[in-house]
Design a protein around this nucleic acid. Structure first.
Lengths: 160, 160
DNA sequence: TATTGTTATACTCTATAACTATA
DNA sequence: TATAGTTATAGAGTATAACAATA
């Protein structure tokens, strides 16, 4: 009986192989990879659409939270959006300079300030949220309404 | 008949309101917000788990693509992972220094180099992919297998 | 003339340490 | 003693311009 292990191994190719089309099957089997790619795809659509308002995703989130939570503090914004306090200071400062939000004294804690939209801020948030609704529609155009709802439910099962 | 418009408006509260618990309903109705939060949650679990291997998410993606596509070029990696060429140079250089990948001449294009795993790289990718499988399991623990599959299908409908 | 890979560099994002005023 | 907000600063991530070698 011939000893297979004594046979010469398949000779290494003299020429190293090259890749015709990249196989991404493995990465695309990972939830983390897919979530990140989808998030970046939506942000890429967000940026040009919201550029006329000079709002980055984080600015929009902050303004929107202030709109729906009048009197929210910087600390609460940080906790909700997972932003570190030193990194929020500049954002709030800029939004205040642009006359979109104002700081009022906190009724219970003199260390804190409650954030509120100005009339200009109200107007801008209203327009921005309309644009975002259109963007969401476009970004999820290949999903049915039911799929869109399912998608958000499943994503929230991961991070909430 | 009394003229309602002549009545004094509801007086503005003397004390500005404060927020007991933050209302995030609106943001959580946006696919972009949910996808980003889920992606960041998974990355936060990735970092400590892969720290022993000194691999960031992007390093893992690069190594994994080289593993499954022997001979892939830097240009192909950039296109697949949406990385700009100048930002890939350092990563590939580091992985080569760590003796995880090597560059072989490309059989068809003398400008390019084909990337291949070294034996050390093969070993590390095998272990890293096992860890990532465990991480995926943990991160999606509240999803059924069917939900996990659905989630990835829906995410791919957004970015592919 | 276009593309691969590279260098240099600027800009943005994220993180840590330390301080003040108030709780 | 702990917390809200702030300053300064370091590090990581992302972007553009320009170049050499090859297609």
């Amino acid at each position: 009986m011939p000893d297979a292990s004594a046979l010469p191994a398949q000779p290494a190719p003299a020429v190293p192989p090259h890749v015709e089309s990249v196989d991404t099957q493995y990465l695309e089997s990972l939830v983390g990879y897919n979530a990140r790619r989808a998030a970046l795809a939506i942000i890429a659509q967000f940026l040009p659409r919201m550029a006329p308002y000079d709002l980055r995703p984080v600015d929009f989130s902050v303004l929107s939270l202030v709109a729906h939570n009048p009197g929210i503090t910087s600390r609460q914004l940080c906790g909700t959006l997972n932003i570190l306090p030193p990194n929020l200071v500049g954002m709030v400062g800029q939004l205040e300079k642009r006359n979109l939000i104002e700081r009022l004294p906190h009724p219970r804690d003199r260390r804190a300030a409650g954030l509120h939209l100005t009339p200009d801020g109200e107007t801008l948030v209203r327009e921005a949220e309309l644009r975002v609704a259109a963007l969401e529609e476009e970004a999820t155009a290949r999903l049915t309404a039911a799929e869109r709802k399912t998608l958000m439910r499943l994503l929230q099962k991961i991070y909430r």
